[in-house]
Simulated assay, not measured.
Amino acid sequence: ITLTDLARLYAGLARGGAVPDLVRRVPGSPPPCGEGPGVGVVQPDCEGGQRNHPHLQLLPTRGRRVTADEHEAERTIADPVSAWYVADILRGAPPPENALSGRIAFKTGTSYGYRDAWAVGFDRRVTIAVWIGRPDGASVPGLVGRASAAPVLFDAFSRFGGEPETLPRPHDALVVATAGLPPPLRHIRRDAPKTLEVTLGVPLKIAYPPDGSRVDLGLSEGARAQLALKALGGQPPLTWMVDGLPVSEGMRRQAAWSPEGAGFARISVMDASGASDSVVVRIE
């Protein structure tokens, strides 16, 4: 994979999952359609006539020429909602020292042996890819993407002038707190939210079955039995889940689950505030 491949990939995330063409301007030619020097992205308002533009060269993918069918197949990497989710996560990445957070979506990387450090960032209009390393590919101690390439990336964005433009959120994107998600999508944490109400109350805890226990329900003999689930504390209603799938929800702190067979199971419970607890047991 090349730096050009990375630039196309992240530029695609900035464009709702549609990977753009990258073009290189022929030396000495005027910049068409507002392109700057060097390598740029084909702009939507003039894309139709740039494929055969006399002053532009379409960059081949992965260092080789591709067929028209291959080219079209590589243009989409994700649907708009998925692309926005990834971009929103990357926008929350911790910035390098002395840089402001939340301004651009970016990702860094370091190759094995500290031979390459790279960083790619984007907003709605601009995607910048940075590589730092030795031409001969030799190792450079301490060469890390976050410490070496990310500061260059943020400095490059600051030189464009103006504020970075955030990506518009698709109308069907889901943005809610953990407690507002459907049970299968909730993030199970052992630490309860640090709110005054939760601090003063009894913390949520699974009382039965104990973590790491082995429960004999006679499944090896073909019996069909239910496993009792009990919790202490927390704010009702409680939602019980086994291996991420909901099995019970209600105001009571007791529930029951019918295993389909013997084996390990992760049992979790979440209350109305988002506090949760989990145990792993072996059913026999």
Rank of each mutant, 00 (worst) to 15 (best):
L238Y: 11
A207R: 08
L143A: 01
P60W: 12
E249K: 10
A68Y: 01
G49I: 13
S111M: 05
P168V: 06
L56Q: 11
V280W: 07
S148F: 00
T2R: 13
M241E: 02
A173Y: 09
R189C: 06
H55E: 08
P151W: 03
V81T: 04
G17H: 07
E72V: 11
G28V: 06
A93W: 02
P209M: 15
V120D: 00
I132C: 06
G28N: 14
F122P: 10
G142S: 15
D216R: 14
P37N: 07
A262R: 14
A119V: 01
G12Q: 03
P135S: 15
G161N: 11
S248A: 12
G145D: 10
A223H: 10
R189P: 08
A192N: 02
P60H: 12
G38V: 03
P193M: 11
L181H: 10
G218F: 13
G234L: 08
P151G: 02
G161F: 13
P237M: 03
G38Q: 09
D5T: 08
P203F: 02
G40D: 11
V23K: 02
L238V: 05
G12I: 03
L174R: 08
D79E: 12
T166K: 11
I128M: 13
W257C: 13
P203C: 01
P259Q: 09
V242Q: 06
M241H: 03
P168G: 13
P30C: 10
R25M: 12
L219T: 04
G244D: 07
G142R: 13
P141I: 07
L3P: 04
L3V: 08
K230C: 12
R146F: 04
A18H: 08
I267K: 04
P151R: 00
G162N: 12
L90Q: 01
F160A: 10
G180V: 12
V19E: 00
R224H: 14
G28R: 14
S278C: 02
T67G: 15
S258T: 09
R103V: 00
P259W: 09
V280Y: 01
A138L: 07
G133Q: 07
V39C: 10
E74S: 04
V175S: 04
L3C: 08
H53N: 13
F106P: 00
G17V: 01
P237E: 12
S148C: 01
P184I: 03
L59A: 08
V41G: 06
V39N: 12
A129G: 08
L200K: 13
Q57M: 15
G113L: 07
I283Q: 03
G261E: 14
W240T: 04
V66C: 00
A149N: 06
A275F: 08
